[in-house]
Design a protein around this nucleic acid. Structure first.
Length: 587
RNA sequence: GGCGAUGUAGCUCAGUCGGUUAGAGCGAGGGCUUCAUAAUCCCUAGGUCACUGGUUCAAGUCCAGUCAUCGCCA
């Protein structure tokens, strides 16, 4: 009955702690979406992993004088810690330096080679005669050809922001040996033949894409309609990365942007193996097994061309072979969440690291604020003042307080049980119908990945419940008409029981706690855990999610009168000015 | 330089196929209430819809140009 939904999450580079802007853009939204999809009964597979290759990681390791694997393991673990703290329910979070990912990458490379979507060609590059090496990407520095900045990187100038070909650099020098007498030499590389994919991609984006966000769709169509896609080199002169499966190229590796996107497929395959049914991944990926599966790719806007052109193009090329894979159904790309008054910048030291702040504030506080601020259509600025105001005046005041006042009253005045209602009035029924309608209104917004709007609708319904409680004022009626008070409390508790579900994708921790306080035994959600996987390349840590036993279902169940409550306590902590003072003055 | 997105109240954002008086939350001012984490609830004030021009009976919405911000590409 349920649809197969693959939630593909952007693969983060593991060269440092992620900041909250990255979480808001690419990592939190897919979890909210995945939790909702599981609640409506769809078969969700949410996968991602750490991108362990690429020059930023190599440079970081070399600067610290440690092996690449040490940097990878350190920040891979740190990211997983963050996922656990925030409750990001990856069915599998792995990384790219696994035997499985190597195998799948080699398989796809060979298929592209056989189908003629990969060709060999020569490329001119800087060569370091001292180190006897070609200098890939950021291994060469020099003077910016545009502004003259002396420490410009190989592909981009940090001073003026211009992007250029490394061969344009003036006075280039090697980051390996420091040599300044660099030569331009020809080196052989493999290229992905994007030109062949132009027309098929254009046909693909030209129908049934009405659900795509306009910025993603227009941008993609614009690039394709120019019909000037060209081959791009997919190998580099490096010794860290996945090897080339044909010929003899010990000094070359497959470049990250070709292999990292394959992770969406390879992680599904690894998940299937770990789950005991090694073919299970086909229910999401194999177009001959299940063409109706839907693949969502959650990314930041800088990643759009890789997910709407290069990766689908790779799949189209692959599909010229005997097996056929599904292309992305939607690519909900977010804009950026910036730090108020300036950009998040590691070098300027003004980043807000998510591991750091998750230790200081409740995960649901972050989930609420980052969703309320979600940069779905435009860049958004984050300030600590905003964070505090949203938590105190919206999350705590509107929803947390509704729960606390109602459960507190029920617990104290109705012997710790859900009171048994008398006949409902027209007003009671109308109110409950309004909240029940939230399963449609909030649900359709989650479905459309309009998470900010879903939050607003849930907040509106919570406010409606506050109004109802004020109107019926059971604390007044309990003396002259206890039955009437019992009914009003019952009706409000029933509404809260439903609102708990409407909020659950955004506020899973709070909803789980509330679920228990309302007296239920089964948890709403499943369990996250880590394990170490052994393979031919060694061992790697993975994050997993076990959905077994999760009872949270997207429907308006009846709250049993008489059900025993657990002692209520506030769901969300209010933030006080004193402890926030340092944060507030920092931005 | 090319392409795309964005620009609406002090702040964060909605605004569907062009159609009455442009909406919400927060913040601000006022009030009711006291079950609650001084929270809730009610009322009020706040907008030349970035700018210029055009199409139309009618433009926040469509078209052209300009400016600003962000991203991708060269």
């Amino acid at each position: 009955m349920g649809l197969n939904i693959l939630v593909g999450v952007a693969w983060p580079y593991v060269n440092g702690e992620k900041h909250i802007g990255q979480i808001a853009g690419a990592y939190l939204p897919p979890d909210i979406f995945a939790r909702y999809q599981r609640m409506i009964g769809n078969d969700v597979l949410m996968v991602s992993g750490s991108d362990t290759h690429g020059t930023p990681i190599m440079l970081k390791a070399e600067a610290e004088g440690v092996p690449y694997t040490e940097i990878v393991e350190k920040y891979h673990r740190l990211f997983i810690d963050g996922c656990l703290a925030m409750g990001l329910t990856f069915d599998l979070y792995t990384h790219t330096d696994t035997a499985n990912h190597w195998d799948v990458t080699h398989h796809m490379f060979l298929r592209h080679w056989e189908t003629g979507f990969i060709y060999k060609d020569m490329q001119r590059q800087w060569y370091d005669p001292v180190a006897k090496k070609f200098l890939a990407d950021r291994y060469v520095e020099g003077e910016c050809p545009y502004c003259g900045y002396p420490d410009a990187r190989g592909d981009q100038c940090d001073n003026c922001g211009r992007i250029y070909d490394a061969l344009e650099l003036k006075n280039p020098r090697s980051k390996i040996s420091g040599a300044t007498m660099l030569e331009i030499r020809e080196t052989e590389h493999f290229f992905l033949d994007l030109a062949k994919m132009n027309e098929p991609l254009l046909a693909w984006v030209s129908h049934d894409k009405e659900h795509w966000r306009p910025n993603v769709l227009n941008f993609t169509r614009g690039l394709l309609e120019r019909r000037d896609l060209r081959g791009r080199a997919i190998t580099r002169d490096l010794d860290w990365g996945i090897t080339i499966p044909i010929g003899d190229y010990p000094d070359k590796r497959i470049y990250v942007w070709y292999e990292a996107v394959i992770g969406y497929l390879s992680a599904a395959i690894e998940w299937a193996k770990l789950s005991g049914d090694s073919e299970a991944w086909r229910r999401w990926w194999d177009a001959d097994v299940n063409p109706g599966a839907r693949i969502y790719n959650f990314i930041g806007k800088d990643n759009i061309p890789f997910h709407t052109i290069i990766w689908p193009g790779m799949l189209i090329g692959y599909n010229h072979g005997p097996t056929h894979l599904n292309l992305p159904y939607d690519v909900p790309a977010n804009e950026y969440l910036n730090l108020g008054g300036g950009k998040f910048s590691t070098s300027r030291g003004n980043v807000i690291g998510w591991n750091t702040v998750l230790a200081q504030f409740q995960p649901d506080a972050w989930r609420y604020v980052l969703t309320a601020l979600a940069p779905e259509t435009a860049d958004v600025e984050f300030t600590w003042q905003d964070f505090m105001d949203r938590v105190n005046n919206e999350l705590v005041a509107n929803w947390g307080n509704l729960v606390n006042r109602t459960l507190g009253f029920a617990y104290k005045r109705f012997e710790g049980r859900v009171p048994t209602p008398a006949a409902l009035t027209e007003e009671d029924e109308a109110f409950l119908a309004e909240i029940r309608a939230g399963f449609d209104s909030v649900g359709s917004l989650y479905q459309a990945v309009r998470l900010k709007a879903a939050l607003q609708e849930a907040r509106r319904l919570s406010q409606r419940a506050n109004q109802y409680l004020n109107d019926t004022a059971p604390w007044k009626t309990i003396n002259e008409s206890p039955e009437r008070a019992a009914t009003a409390i019952y009706v409000t508790l029933q509404a809260i029981d439903w609102l708990k579900l409407l909020w659950a994708p955004i506020l899973p921790h709070g909803s789980e706690e509330l679920h228990q306080m309302l007296g239920y035994e089964q948890p709403l959600f499943g369990r996250q855990y880590t394990e170490t996987v052994e393979d031919a390349r060694g061992s790697h840590l993975v994050l997993r999610y076990d959905h077994t036993g999760a009872s949270g279902v997207w429907q308006a169940n009846v709250l049993p009168p008489g059900q025993l409550l657990r002692e209520p306590k506030p769901l969300f902590a209010k933030l006080d000015e004193a402890t926030m003072a340092e944060k507030l003055s920092s931005v």
